[in-house]
Write a protein that binds this DNA or RNA. Structure first.
Lengths: 224, 224
DNA sequence: TACTAGCAGCGTACACTGTACGATGAAGAA
DNA sequence: TTCTTCATCGTACAGTGTACGCTGCTAGTA
Protein backbone atom coordinates (compact mmCIF):
# COMPACT_ATOMS: atom_id res chain seq x y z
CA UNK A 1 0.00 0.00 0.00
CA UNK A 2 1.43 3.36 -1.03
CA UNK A 3 1.84 6.28 1.30
CA UNK A 4 -0.89 8.13 -0.58
CA UNK A 5 -3.34 5.34 -0.10
CA UNK A 6 -2.40 5.16 3.58
CA UNK A 7 -3.29 8.83 3.98
CA UNK A 8 -6.50 8.26 2.12
CA UNK A 9 -7.46 5.46 4.43
CA UNK A 10 -6.48 7.39 7.52
CA UNK A 11 -8.58 10.41 6.64
CA UNK A 12 -11.48 8.35 5.39
CA UNK A 13 -13.77 5.96 7.15
CA UNK A 14 -11.17 3.17 7.22
CA UNK A 15 -9.22 2.48 10.37
CA UNK A 16 -5.52 2.97 10.95
CA UNK A 17 -3.24 2.91 13.98
CA UNK A 18 -3.16 6.73 13.91
CA UNK A 19 -6.92 7.02 13.96
CA UNK A 20 -7.29 4.39 16.68
CA UNK A 21 -4.74 5.96 19.00
CA UNK A 22 -5.87 9.54 18.41
CA UNK A 23 -9.46 8.62 19.14
CA UNK A 24 -8.32 6.74 22.25
CA UNK A 25 -6.62 9.90 23.51
CA UNK A 26 -9.76 11.91 22.83
CA UNK A 27 -11.86 9.38 24.70
CA UNK A 28 -9.47 9.33 27.67
CA UNK A 29 -9.49 13.14 27.79
CA UNK A 30 -13.27 13.15 27.84
CA UNK A 31 -14.03 10.26 30.15
CA UNK A 32 -10.82 9.46 31.96
CA UNK A 33 -8.66 6.42 31.41
CA UNK A 34 -11.10 4.19 33.29
CA UNK A 35 -13.77 5.00 30.74
CA UNK A 36 -11.57 3.79 27.91
CA UNK A 37 -12.52 0.26 26.90
CA UNK A 38 -11.84 -1.44 23.63
CA UNK A 39 -15.55 -1.75 22.94
CA UNK A 40 -16.27 1.91 23.64
CA UNK A 41 -13.27 2.99 21.61
CA UNK A 42 -14.43 0.81 18.74
CA UNK A 43 -17.89 2.30 19.06
CA UNK A 44 -16.50 5.82 18.83
CA UNK A 45 -14.74 4.76 15.64
CA UNK A 46 -17.81 3.10 14.22
CA UNK A 47 -16.13 -0.29 14.22
CA UNK A 48 -16.31 -3.63 15.97
CA UNK A 49 -14.21 -4.19 19.06
CA UNK A 50 -11.98 -6.86 17.57
CA UNK A 51 -11.12 -4.71 14.56
CA UNK A 52 -8.84 -2.62 16.75
CA UNK A 53 -6.55 -5.58 17.21
CA UNK A 54 -5.45 -5.29 13.60
CA UNK A 55 -3.68 -2.05 14.49
CA UNK A 56 -2.73 -2.64 18.10
CA UNK A 57 -1.42 -5.86 19.58
CA UNK A 58 -3.04 -5.34 22.96
CA UNK A 59 -4.52 -2.65 25.14
CA UNK A 60 -1.11 -2.25 26.79
CA UNK A 61 0.40 -1.35 23.43
CA UNK A 62 -2.45 1.07 22.83
CA UNK A 63 -1.69 2.81 26.13
CA UNK A 64 2.00 3.00 25.22
CA UNK A 65 1.11 4.61 21.91
CA UNK A 66 -1.23 7.05 23.64
CA UNK A 67 1.52 8.15 26.02
CA UNK A 68 3.86 8.69 23.10
CA UNK A 69 1.27 10.81 21.27
CA UNK A 70 1.06 12.98 24.36
CA UNK A 71 4.84 13.38 24.38
CA UNK A 72 4.68 14.47 20.76
CA UNK A 73 2.50 17.40 21.75
CA UNK A 74 5.23 18.80 24.00
CA UNK A 75 7.43 21.47 22.40
CA UNK A 76 10.97 20.32 21.81
CA UNK A 77 13.64 22.44 23.49
CA UNK A 78 14.39 25.20 20.94
CA UNK A 79 17.98 25.57 19.80
CA UNK A 80 18.26 29.26 19.12
CA UNK A 81 17.89 30.75 22.60
CA UNK A 82 19.88 30.62 25.84
CA UNK A 83 19.58 27.40 27.77
CA UNK A 84 17.32 28.76 30.52
CA UNK A 85 14.74 30.10 28.08
CA UNK A 86 14.83 26.84 26.14
CA UNK A 87 14.32 24.75 29.26
CA UNK A 88 11.59 27.04 30.50
CA UNK A 89 9.67 26.80 27.25
CA UNK A 90 9.85 23.05 27.19
CA UNK A 91 8.84 22.75 30.84
CA UNK A 92 5.89 25.11 30.44
CA UNK A 93 4.78 23.26 27.34
CA UNK A 94 5.03 19.92 29.12
CA UNK A 95 3.02 21.25 32.03
CA UNK A 96 0.27 22.47 29.71
CA UNK A 97 0.15 19.22 27.79
CA UNK A 98 -0.03 17.12 30.96
CA UNK A 99 -2.79 19.36 32.26
CA UNK A 100 -4.71 18.61 29.06
CA UNK A 101 -4.12 14.86 29.39
CA UNK A 102 -3.90 14.19 33.14
CA UNK A 103 -4.42 10.44 32.67
CA UNK A 104 -1.04 10.28 30.92
CA UNK A 105 0.84 11.04 34.13
CA UNK A 106 -0.40 7.99 35.97
CA UNK A 107 0.18 5.91 32.87
CA UNK A 108 3.88 6.72 32.74
CA UNK A 109 4.53 4.65 35.80
CA UNK A 110 4.37 0.92 34.94
CA UNK A 111 5.37 1.73 31.34
CA UNK A 112 9.04 0.78 31.11
CA UNK A 113 9.61 1.37 27.43
CA UNK A 114 10.41 4.97 26.50
CA UNK A 115 8.65 5.76 23.24
CA UNK A 116 10.35 7.53 20.32
CA UNK A 117 8.86 10.95 21.16
CA UNK A 118 10.15 10.61 24.71
CA UNK A 119 13.60 9.75 23.41
CA UNK A 120 13.64 12.75 21.07
CA UNK A 121 12.91 15.01 24.03
CA UNK A 122 15.71 13.58 26.09
CA UNK A 123 18.06 14.08 23.17
CA UNK A 124 16.97 17.68 22.63
CA UNK A 125 17.24 18.56 26.32
CA UNK A 126 20.63 16.90 26.65
CA UNK A 127 21.84 18.69 23.52
CA UNK A 128 20.71 22.03 24.89
CA UNK A 129 22.40 21.49 28.24
CA UNK A 130 25.64 20.20 26.75
CA UNK A 131 25.86 23.11 24.32
CA UNK A 132 25.27 25.47 27.26
CA UNK A 133 28.43 24.09 28.83
CA UNK A 134 27.14 21.54 31.33
CA UNK A 135 29.50 18.59 31.76
CA UNK A 136 27.88 15.24 31.04
CA UNK A 137 27.25 14.30 34.65
CA UNK A 138 25.81 17.72 35.45
CA UNK A 139 23.58 17.57 32.38
CA UNK A 140 22.29 14.24 33.66
CA UNK A 141 21.58 15.73 37.06
CA UNK A 142 19.81 18.68 35.48
CA UNK A 143 17.73 16.37 33.31
CA UNK A 144 16.58 14.38 36.30
CA UNK A 145 15.85 17.45 38.36
CA UNK A 146 13.88 19.27 35.69
CA UNK A 147 11.86 16.23 34.62
CA UNK A 148 11.14 15.29 38.21
CA UNK A 149 9.86 18.78 38.91
CA UNK A 150 7.67 18.90 35.81
CA UNK A 151 6.13 15.45 36.26
CA UNK A 152 5.75 15.80 40.01
CA UNK A 153 4.10 19.17 39.65
CA UNK A 154 1.73 17.85 37.02
CA UNK A 155 0.91 14.88 39.25
CA UNK A 156 0.05 17.13 42.19
CA UNK A 157 -1.86 19.61 40.08
CA UNK A 158 -3.90 16.81 38.54
CA UNK A 159 -5.74 16.01 41.75
CA UNK A 160 -6.18 19.51 43.06
CA UNK A 161 -9.69 20.81 42.52
CA UNK A 162 -8.68 24.41 41.75
CA UNK A 163 -6.82 26.24 38.99
CA UNK A 164 -7.54 29.91 39.54
CA UNK A 165 -7.44 32.42 42.38
CA UNK A 166 -11.21 32.34 42.74
CA UNK A 167 -11.47 28.57 42.72
CA UNK A 168 -8.72 28.35 45.31
CA UNK A 169 -10.39 30.89 47.58
CA UNK A 170 -13.68 29.09 47.24
CA UNK A 171 -12.23 25.67 48.03
CA UNK A 172 -10.12 26.98 50.91
CA UNK A 173 -12.99 28.74 52.63
CA UNK A 174 -15.72 26.20 52.00
CA UNK A 175 -13.84 22.89 52.02
CA UNK A 176 -10.33 23.00 53.49
CA UNK A 177 -10.78 25.33 56.45
CA UNK A 178 -14.01 23.75 57.72
CA UNK A 179 -12.40 20.32 57.61
CA UNK A 180 -9.13 21.19 59.37
CA UNK A 181 -9.37 21.37 63.17
CA UNK A 182 -7.31 24.43 64.11
CA UNK A 183 -5.68 22.78 67.11
CA UNK A 184 -4.53 19.82 65.03
CA UNK A 185 -3.52 21.76 61.92
CA UNK A 186 -2.58 25.25 63.11
CA UNK A 187 -0.10 25.96 60.35
CA UNK A 188 -2.32 24.75 57.54
CA UNK A 189 -5.12 26.92 58.88
CA UNK A 190 -2.85 29.91 59.08
CA UNK A 191 -1.55 29.30 55.56
CA UNK A 192 -4.93 28.77 53.97
CA UNK A 193 -6.34 31.92 55.52
CA UNK A 194 -3.33 34.03 54.61
CA UNK A 195 -3.18 32.73 51.05
CA UNK A 196 -6.85 33.49 50.49
CA UNK A 197 -6.40 36.99 51.94
CA UNK A 198 -3.39 37.61 49.70
CA UNK A 199 -5.23 36.45 46.57
CA UNK A 200 -2.98 33.46 45.99
CA UNK A 201 -2.86 32.44 42.32
CA UNK A 202 -2.14 28.73 41.75
CA UNK A 203 -1.38 29.37 38.09
CA UNK A 204 1.88 31.11 38.98
CA UNK A 205 3.11 28.36 41.27
CA UNK A 206 4.73 26.34 38.51
CA UNK A 207 6.95 29.14 37.23
CA UNK A 208 8.27 29.98 40.66
CA UNK A 209 9.78 26.56 41.34
CA UNK A 210 10.92 26.23 37.76
CA UNK A 211 12.86 29.49 37.77
CA UNK A 212 14.33 28.69 41.16
CA UNK A 213 15.63 25.39 39.82
CA UNK A 214 16.98 26.94 36.63
CA UNK A 215 18.84 29.60 38.62
CA UNK A 216 20.27 26.97 40.93
CA UNK A 217 21.55 24.97 37.95
CA UNK A 218 23.29 27.94 36.34
CA UNK A 219 26.53 27.70 38.39
CA UNK A 220 26.98 24.05 37.37
CA UNK A 221 27.94 25.04 33.83
CA UNK A 222 31.62 24.71 33.08
CA UNK A 223 33.21 27.75 31.43
CA UNK A 224 33.01 27.17 27.69
CA UNK B 1 -17.95 -3.07 69.83
CA UNK B 2 -15.23 -2.00 72.26
CA UNK B 3 -11.72 -1.07 71.25
CA UNK B 4 -10.46 -4.25 72.87
CA UNK B 5 -12.75 -6.42 70.84
CA UNK B 6 -11.75 -4.53 67.72
CA UNK B 7 -8.10 -5.37 68.42
CA UNK B 8 -9.03 -8.95 69.10
CA UNK B 9 -10.79 -9.22 65.81
CA UNK B 10 -7.98 -7.51 63.97
CA UNK B 11 -5.29 -9.83 65.26
CA UNK B 12 -7.36 -12.97 64.97
CA UNK B 13 -8.83 -14.73 61.99
CA UNK B 14 -11.72 -12.26 61.78
CA UNK B 15 -11.64 -9.47 59.28
CA UNK B 16 -11.28 -5.75 59.90
CA UNK B 17 -10.67 -2.72 57.76
CA UNK B 18 -7.04 -2.68 58.93
CA UNK B 19 -6.47 -6.27 57.92
CA UNK B 20 -8.19 -5.82 54.57
CA UNK B 21 -6.22 -2.72 53.61
CA UNK B 22 -2.88 -4.02 54.85
CA UNK B 23 -3.31 -7.23 52.91
CA UNK B 24 -4.32 -5.22 49.84
CA UNK B 25 -1.07 -3.25 50.07
CA UNK B 26 0.89 -6.47 50.38
CA UNK B 27 -0.86 -7.91 47.35
CA UNK B 28 -0.25 -4.77 45.29
CA UNK B 29 3.43 -4.79 46.28
CA UNK B 30 3.73 -8.39 45.16
CA UNK B 31 1.66 -8.42 41.99
CA UNK B 32 1.15 -4.81 41.00
CA UNK B 33 -2.05 -2.88 41.26
CA UNK B 34 -3.47 -4.65 38.20
CA UNK B 35 -3.21 -7.95 40.01
CA UNK B 36 -5.31 -6.68 42.88
CA UNK B 37 -8.90 -7.83 42.52
CA UNK B 38 -11.50 -8.11 45.23
CA UNK B 39 -11.71 -11.86 44.72
CA UNK B 40 -7.96 -12.38 44.95
CA UNK B 41 -7.72 -10.12 47.97
CA UNK B 42 -10.53 -12.03 49.65
CA UNK B 43 -8.76 -15.26 48.81
CA UNK B 44 -5.56 -14.04 50.44
CA UNK B 45 -7.61 -13.26 53.56
CA UNK B 46 -9.39 -16.61 53.49
CA UNK B 47 -12.76 -14.95 53.00
CA UNK B 48 -15.43 -14.58 50.38
CA UNK B 49 -15.26 -11.69 47.97
CA UNK B 50 -18.38 -9.95 49.18
CA UNK B 51 -17.25 -10.02 52.80
CA UNK B 52 -14.81 -7.24 52.03
CA UNK B 53 -17.67 -4.85 51.37
CA UNK B 54 -18.53 -4.80 55.05
CA UNK B 55 -15.29 -2.94 55.70
CA UNK B 56 -14.90 -0.98 52.50
CA UNK B 57 -17.65 0.76 50.58
CA UNK B 58 -16.08 0.16 47.17
CA UNK B 59 -12.80 -0.64 45.54
CA UNK B 60 -12.20 3.10 45.12
CA UNK B 61 -12.39 3.57 48.87
CA UNK B 62 -10.04 0.65 49.33
CA UNK B 63 -7.50 2.29 47.02
CA UNK B 64 -7.85 5.56 48.94
CA UNK B 65 -7.16 3.74 52.19
CA UNK B 66 -4.16 1.97 50.64
CA UNK B 67 -2.66 5.28 49.55
CA UNK B 68 -3.12 6.67 53.04
CA UNK B 69 -1.41 3.66 54.60
CA UNK B 70 1.55 4.31 52.33
CA UNK B 71 1.67 7.93 53.49
CA UNK B 72 1.73 6.72 57.06
CA UNK B 73 4.98 4.88 56.38
CA UNK B 74 6.75 8.11 55.49
CA UNK B 75 8.71 9.72 58.33
CA UNK B 76 7.20 12.97 59.54
CA UNK B 77 9.53 15.95 59.36
CA UNK B 78 11.39 15.90 62.69
CA UNK B 79 11.19 19.00 64.86
CA UNK B 80 14.52 19.02 66.61
CA UNK B 81 16.95 19.63 63.76
CA UNK B 82 17.59 22.46 61.31
CA UNK B 83 15.06 22.78 58.53
CA UNK B 84 17.30 21.40 55.77
CA UNK B 85 18.07 18.20 57.66
CA UNK B 86 14.41 17.78 58.53
CA UNK B 87 13.30 18.23 54.92
CA UNK B 88 16.03 15.94 53.67
CA UNK B 89 15.02 13.17 56.05
CA UNK B 90 11.40 13.41 55.07
CA UNK B 91 12.20 13.48 51.36
CA UNK B 92 14.55 10.49 51.58
CA UNK B 93 11.99 8.57 53.57
CA UNK B 94 9.26 9.39 51.05
CA UNK B 95 11.50 8.27 48.21
CA UNK B 96 12.20 4.95 49.92
CA UNK B 97 8.55 4.33 50.70
CA UNK B 98 7.45 5.11 47.16
CA UNK B 99 10.15 2.81 45.82
CA UNK B 100 8.66 0.05 47.98
CA UNK B 101 5.12 0.78 46.78
CA UNK B 102 5.51 2.08 43.24
CA UNK B 103 1.84 1.50 42.44
CA UNK B 104 0.94 4.23 44.94
CA UNK B 105 2.43 6.96 42.75
CA UNK B 106 0.10 6.36 39.85
CA UNK B 107 -2.81 6.05 42.25
CA UNK B 108 -2.31 9.53 43.66
CA UNK B 109 -3.49 11.05 40.45
CA UNK B 110 -7.27 10.69 40.09
CA UNK B 111 -7.60 10.59 43.89
CA UNK B 112 -8.81 14.07 44.84
CA UNK B 113 -9.31 13.55 48.56
CA UNK B 114 -6.17 13.98 50.66
CA UNK B 115 -6.22 11.36 53.39
CA UNK B 116 -5.44 12.12 57.06
CA UNK B 117 -1.84 10.89 56.87
CA UNK B 118 -1.25 13.13 53.87
CA UNK B 119 -2.67 16.10 55.77
CA UNK B 120 -0.46 15.42 58.78
CA UNK B 121 2.59 15.52 56.52
CA UNK B 122 1.62 18.82 54.99
CA UNK B 123 1.09 20.23 58.46
CA UNK B 124 4.46 18.98 59.70
CA UNK B 125 6.33 20.27 56.66
CA UNK B 126 4.61 23.65 56.81
CA UNK B 127 5.36 23.88 60.52
CA UNK B 128 9.03 23.14 59.91
CA UNK B 129 9.34 25.73 57.17
CA UNK B 130 7.46 28.42 59.06
CA UNK B 131 9.57 27.90 62.19
CA UNK B 132 12.67 28.12 60.03
CA UNK B 133 11.60 31.62 59.07
CA UNK B 134 9.95 31.14 55.68
CA UNK B 135 7.07 33.57 55.11
CA UNK B 136 3.77 31.87 54.36
CA UNK B 137 3.94 32.34 50.61
CA UNK B 138 7.53 31.14 50.45
CA UNK B 139 6.67 28.12 52.60
CA UNK B 140 3.93 27.31 50.10
CA UNK B 141 6.36 27.59 47.22
CA UNK B 142 8.86 25.38 49.02
CA UNK B 143 6.19 22.81 49.76
CA UNK B 144 5.18 22.60 46.12
CA UNK B 145 8.76 22.45 44.91
CA UNK B 146 9.87 19.76 47.33
CA UNK B 147 6.81 17.57 46.87
CA UNK B 148 6.97 17.93 43.10
CA UNK B 149 10.59 16.84 43.11
CA UNK B 150 9.98 13.85 45.37
CA UNK B 151 6.92 12.57 43.54
CA UNK B 152 8.32 13.28 40.11
CA UNK B 153 11.56 11.53 40.94
CA UNK B 154 9.71 8.53 42.30
CA UNK B 155 7.57 8.44 39.17
CA UNK B 156 10.60 8.42 36.89
CA UNK B 157 12.52 5.94 39.01
CA UNK B 158 9.54 3.59 39.03
CA UNK B 159 9.80 2.77 35.34
CA UNK B 160 13.54 2.66 35.03
CA UNK B 161 14.88 -0.87 34.91
CA UNK B 162 18.04 -0.17 36.92
CA UNK B 163 18.89 0.78 40.49
CA UNK B 164 22.59 0.17 40.85
CA UNK B 165 25.80 1.05 39.01
CA UNK B 166 26.07 -2.45 37.60
CA UNK B 167 22.48 -2.64 36.45
CA UNK B 168 22.81 0.74 34.79
CA UNK B 169 25.98 -0.25 32.99
CA UNK B 170 24.39 -3.47 31.85
CA UNK B 171 21.24 -1.78 30.55
CA UNK B 172 23.16 1.03 28.88
CA UNK B 173 25.53 -1.25 27.03
CA UNK B 174 23.10 -4.00 26.09
CA UNK B 175 19.82 -2.13 25.63
CA UNK B 176 20.11 1.65 25.31
CA UNK B 177 23.18 2.03 23.16
CA UNK B 178 22.25 -0.67 20.63
CA UNK B 179 18.81 0.91 20.19
CA UNK B 180 19.93 4.52 19.75
CA UNK B 181 21.17 5.37 16.23
CA UNK B 182 24.23 7.56 16.86
CA UNK B 183 23.37 10.01 14.10
CA UNK B 184 19.88 10.59 15.46
CA UNK B 185 20.81 10.63 19.13
CA UNK B 186 24.41 11.80 19.33
CA UNK B 187 24.17 13.38 22.75
CA UNK B 188 22.35 10.46 24.37
CA UNK B 189 25.00 8.13 22.96
CA UNK B 190 27.78 10.30 24.28
CA UNK B 191 26.12 10.55 27.70
CA UNK B 192 25.39 6.85 28.06
CA UNK B 193 28.93 5.89 27.14
CA UNK B 194 30.49 8.49 29.43
CA UNK B 195 28.26 7.62 32.37
CA UNK B 196 29.07 3.94 32.07
CA UNK B 197 32.78 4.73 31.87
CA UNK B 198 32.55 6.94 34.95
CA UNK B 199 30.70 4.29 36.96
CA UNK B 200 27.50 6.33 37.25
CA UNK B 201 25.48 5.42 40.36
CA UNK B 202 21.72 6.01 40.01
CA UNK B 203 21.25 5.68 43.76
CA UNK B 204 22.96 9.02 44.35
CA UNK B 205 20.88 10.89 41.82
CA UNK B 206 18.06 11.68 44.21
CA UNK B 207 20.23 13.39 46.82
CA UNK B 208 21.91 15.63 44.28
CA UNK B 209 18.73 17.33 43.11
CA UNK B 210 17.33 17.39 46.61
CA UNK B 211 20.32 19.20 48.09
CA UNK B 212 20.42 21.59 45.16
CA UNK B 213 16.80 22.51 45.80
CA UNK B 214 17.29 22.86 49.54
CA UNK B 215 20.27 25.17 49.02
CA UNK B 216 18.30 27.25 46.55
CA UNK B 217 15.47 27.64 49.05
CA UNK B 218 17.74 28.80 51.88
CA UNK B 219 17.87 32.50 50.84
CA UNK B 220 14.06 32.69 50.83
CA UNK B 221 13.94 32.58 54.62
CA UNK B 222 13.17 35.87 56.26
CA UNK B 223 15.48 36.82 59.13
CA UNK B 224 13.91 35.56 62.34
C1' DT C 1 -12.71 -14.60 -17.06
C1' DA C 2 -11.82 -17.65 -13.16
C1' DC C 3 -9.12 -18.76 -9.36
C1' DT C 4 -6.46 -17.69 -5.59
C1' DA C 5 -4.09 -15.26 -1.57
C1' DG C 6 -4.12 -12.04 1.58
C1' DC C 7 -6.20 -9.15 4.54
C1' DA C 8 -9.54 -5.74 6.98
C1' DG C 9 -13.29 -6.36 9.76
C1' DC C 10 -15.99 -8.56 13.15
C1' DG C 11 -19.29 -12.21 15.81
C1' DT C 12 -18.92 -15.29 19.32
C1' DA C 13 -17.10 -17.14 23.42
C1' DC C 14 -14.35 -17.43 27.71
C1' DA C 15 -12.31 -16.13 31.81
C1' DC C 16 -12.34 -12.44 34.69
C1' DT C 17 -13.84 -7.91 36.91
C1' DG C 18 -16.74 -4.88 40.49
C1' DT C 19 -20.69 -5.17 43.03
C1' DA C 20 -26.25 -5.37 43.96
C1' DC C 21 -29.21 -8.37 46.24
C1' DG C 22 -30.73 -11.51 49.30
C1' DA C 23 -29.93 -15.75 52.06
C1' DT C 24 -27.63 -17.91 56.14
C1' DG C 25 -26.34 -18.59 60.58
C1' DA C 26 -24.69 -16.96 65.05
C1' DA C 27 -25.06 -13.96 69.10
C1' DG C 28 -27.51 -11.33 72.22
C1' DA C 29 -31.94 -9.12 74.19
C1' DA C 30 -36.84 -9.39 75.40
C1' DT D 1 -38.85 -18.79 72.98
C1' DT D 2 -38.87 -15.10 69.58
C1' DC D 3 -36.81 -11.03 67.63
C1' DT D 4 -33.18 -8.15 66.20
C1' DT D 5 -28.62 -7.29 64.64
C1' DC D 6 -24.81 -8.23 62.16
C1' DA D 7 -20.74 -10.64 59.81
C1' DT D 8 -20.32 -13.61 56.08
C1' DC D 9 -21.01 -15.17 51.65
C1' DG D 10 -23.47 -17.47 47.10
C1' DT D 11 -25.43 -16.09 43.12
C1' DA D 12 -26.12 -13.17 39.37
C1' DC D 13 -25.39 -9.37 36.07
C1' DA D 14 -23.24 -6.12 33.28
C1' DG D 15 -18.96 -5.06 31.54
C1' DT D 16 -13.82 -6.10 30.59
C1' DG D 17 -9.64 -7.86 27.44
C1' DT D 18 -8.91 -10.85 23.90
C1' DA D 19 -8.34 -15.88 21.40
C1' DC D 20 -10.35 -18.02 17.61
C1' DG D 21 -12.24 -18.40 13.38
C1' DC D 22 -15.55 -16.79 9.90
C1' DT D 23 -16.69 -13.40 6.41
C1' DG D 24 -16.34 -10.70 2.18
C1' DC D 25 -13.39 -7.61 -0.52
C1' DT D 26 -9.39 -6.59 -3.40
C1' DA D 27 -5.16 -7.52 -6.26
C1' DG D 28 -2.73 -10.45 -8.75
C1' DT D 29 -2.03 -14.33 -11.78
C1' DA D 30 -3.14 -17.60 -15.28
Amino acid sequence: MSAREQDQVASDAGLSKQRVVVEAVRLADREGVDGLSMRRLAGALGAGAMSLYHYVASKEELLDAMVDIVFEEIELAPEETDWQSAMRRRAVSARQVLARHPWAIGLMESRTSAGPANLRHHEAVTACLRRAGFPILMATHANWLLDSYVYGFALQAANLPFDTTDEFADMAENVFLPQLPPDEFPYLNESAAALVAAGYDPAEEFIFGLDLVLAALEPLRAPA
